[in-house]
Amino acid sequence: MEHLTSPKLTPGVHCLSLRHKGMYVTSMPYPEESQFYDAYDATAYWCVETQRGFGPDGAPVRPDCCQGDRDCCKH
């Protein structure tokens, strides 16, 4: 089961350098969470190459940005 509030980053789609806190805490999904609110995304992202919320090209990093043919993306 996926977290309701954590984004799903897909290898092959999203840049492998994209990071968020959920990737670093050893949490478990909370199965009943969806009873109390709908999905939302409060996630802060960063690039593992730059260690900040902007990629090597200076643009922000987020799942919608860090995919496809962005020059700095690593797949």
Binding site: T5, D38, Y40, T43, A44, Y45, A59, V61
Partner: peptide, 10 residues
């Protein structure tokens, strides 16, 4: 700068 702001509602 370029970062999201989601929260649960209601």
């Amino acid at each position: 700068a370029g970062a999201g702001s989601g929260f649960p509602l209601p």
